[in-house]
Computed example of a mutant assay.
Amino acid sequence: MSISVIIALVGLGLMVVFMLSVMPGNSAESRMEEQLNAIPDFTPSVSYKSSMCKNAIAIDIDREKIAVLLNPMKLRQLEAKPSVYGFSDLMAVELVRDGASVIKTQRGSQIAGAAVGGVLLGPAGLIVGGLSGSKRQESKIEKLSIKLYANDMMTPVQELFFLDFPGTGVDPQQIQPILRDLDQWYGRLRVIVESKKTVRA
């Protein structure tokens, strides 16, 4: 079997994995949705569930709460329960690519990490920007995540994965839906951090 055929098959396999990860209605996503909907005094206004990464996040805008459900395997647990924070408890949000910070927004300070001019591109633009030809091949992505830093002594840091494909990595052009989701969720969480809202009584 030629190398080009092998590469084509690997690429096809990756596309199938990504298509399955964004398709609604699969059992992993249904289970995560049930867990989010079962949280007392919490009604998701918007949510993100990844069957590929087995984690989820939801925001209840009216009650000003955020729920995060992480992959139990990463927590070394049989089952994970959602963590719920008030908007006022979210102190910082950070976008991470392959273990390195891309951009970070924290309460009471300016955006850290990438150049301010890059913010116009959005986080995904910072990740993909400037990739072409051979550079694209060298810049495959293995992991993409958002870290939430909360005012919580037990679990002050939660890492929500949007892509977790260690070893081979993927071309950014193949994961445009994931990058769009990443942009939207970093944007939502950044708005919460910068608004400095408090939870209503």
Results as ranks from 00 to 15, higher is better:
90 L>D: 04
115 A>G: 14
1 M>F: 12
17 V>R: 12
144 L>W: 07
194 E>Q: 08
58 A>P: 01
115 A>P: 12
22 V>P: 11
145 S>L: 10
118 G>Q: 14
180 R>N: 10
6 I>H: 09
84 V>I: 07
97 R>C: 15
92 A>V: 00
23 M>Q: 13
71 N>C: 08
75 L>G: 01
24 P>M: 05
14 L>T: 09
185 W>I: 00
99 G>R: 03
116 V>Y: 14
33 E>H: 05
173 Q>W: 10
101 S>P: 13
156 P>N: 12
7 I>K: 11
118 G>K: 14
113 G>S: 04
32 M>W: 03
58 A>T: 08
141 I>H: 08
40 P>N: 08
201 A>W: 07
124 A>V: 05
172 P>I: 11
180 R>V: 02
198 T>Q: 11
59 I>S: 00
63 R>L: 00
176 Q>I: 11
157 V>P: 01
47 S>Y: 07
148 L>E: 08
50 S>M: 03
182 L>V: 05
191 V>C: 09
43 T>A: 02
8 A>W: 07
183 D>I: 08
194 E>V: 00
155 T>E: 03
185 W>D: 05
124 A>S: 15
162 F>E: 02
79 E>T: 13
18 F>I: 15
139 S>L: 13
173 Q>D: 04
60 D>Q: 03
1 M>I: 14
59 I>E: 03
24 P>Q: 05
141 I>W: 12
45 S>P: 05
56 A>Q: 07
122 G>Y: 08
155 T>C: 07
69 L>M: 04
200 R>V: 06
165 F>E: 02
42 F>G: 01
50 S>A: 03
87 F>C: 00
62 D>M: 01
168 T>R: 13
